[in-house]
Simulated scan of single mutants.
Amino acid sequence: MRIYGDKRSGNCYKLELLLSLLGKSCEWVDVDILKGETRTSAFLEKSPNGKIPILELDDGRVLSESNAIMHYLASNTPLLPSTPYTYAQVLQWQFFEQYSHEPYIAVARYINLYLGLPDDKRAEFESKQAGGYRALEVMEKQLKQTPFLIGDTLSLADISLFAYTHVAHEGGFDLSAYPAIRNWIGLVKEQQGFVAMQ
């Protein structure tokens, strides 16, 4: 298998972290979005949406969307619960990550880290702060009740949300008011096989 991605991207890091936690390896192909490498005809042939990460299987089939790839890689492992309700809880948090968390925290980080917070993007950067803090409040409320997002053990839900949350400060978010999130970040980092974002 082969992953095309950028290891600074939270959506790509999810896969790197998951594979490491599972003790699996995969060939990695670096893709630079700022150089237009996701818009080449060769890349678009693999992924018409022109986004990373993508997973290319040995038989040439391709999966896109980080959370879908995570489900494929974690199939039949303890990181993906098998009971209908807990499985749905994982999906609930992953949908939350894509619709209520990533559009604010990840986009603010992209503007600041990748683009260098140019003047013409400052208003957009600032507009992301309120939504990002709302997402953090939702996580904090849950993590005050359970050490991980769906209970006492790590799941794909945690990996999906850890990716951008633990570097939220790079998007201008201050986690000092979120002790449960900070504790959870520490718990994830203590997991056997944990690998830091490059």
Rank of each mutant, 00 (worst) to 15 (best):
A108Q: 02
R109L: 06
Y110V: 02
I111T: 05
I111K: 04
I111C: 06
I111M: 07
N112E: 08
N112H: 13
N112C: 05
N112G: 00
L113H: 13
L113W: 13
Y114I: 14
Y114T: 15
Y114N: 12
L115Q: 11
L115C: 10
G116P: 07
G116K: 01
G116C: 08
L117V: 00
L117Y: 00
L117H: 02
P118L: 07
P118W: 03
P118M: 10
P118F: 07
P118R: 04
D119K: 15
D119T: 15
K121P: 08
R122Y: 07
A123W: 15
E124L: 15
E124S: 13
F125Y: 14
F125D: 00
F125C: 06
F125R: 03
E126V: 14
E126N: 15
E126I: 14
S127H: 12
S127V: 10
S127G: 12
K128D: 10
K128A: 04
K128S: 02
K128V: 01
Q129D: 07
Q129T: 09
A130H: 13
G132L: 04
G132F: 04
Y133T: 13
R134K: 15
R134E: 14
R134H: 13
A135I: 07
A135F: 09
A135R: 08
A135W: 03
L136P: 05
L136F: 07
L136S: 07
E137G: 10
E137N: 15
E137R: 15
V138D: 09
V138H: 12
V138M: 11
M139S: 03
M139R: 05
E140M: 02
E140W: 03
E140D: 08
E140T: 05
E140F: 02
Q142R: 14
Q142V: 07
L143R: 00
L143Q: 07
L143F: 05
L143W: 01
K144F: 12
K144C: 12
Q145N: 11
Q145G: 09
Q145W: 08
P147R: 02
P147Y: 00
P147Q: 02
P147F: 01
F148I: 09
L149G: 07
L149Q: 01
L149P: 08
L149K: 04
I150P: 05
I150D: 03
I150T: 06
I150A: 05
I150F: 03
I150S: 06
D152P: 00
D152R: 10
T153D: 15
T153C: 13
T153L: 13
T153N: 15
L154T: 07
S155W: 06
S155L: 08
I159D: 02
L161S: 10
L161G: 01
F162R: 05
F162Q: 00
A163C: 09
A163P: 09
A163L: 07
A163K: 06
Y164W: 15
Y164R: 01
Y164H: 13
T165V: 11
H166F: 11
H166E: 13
V167H: 03
V167T: 10
A168F: 12
H169R: 08
H169T: 02
H169M: 00
H169E: 14
E170N: 03
E170Y: 09
E170F: 06
G171F: 09
G172S: 00
G172T: 01
F173D: 04
F173V: 07
L175R: 03
L175A: 05
L175Y: 02
S176V: 11
S176I: 12
S176A: 14
S176F: 12
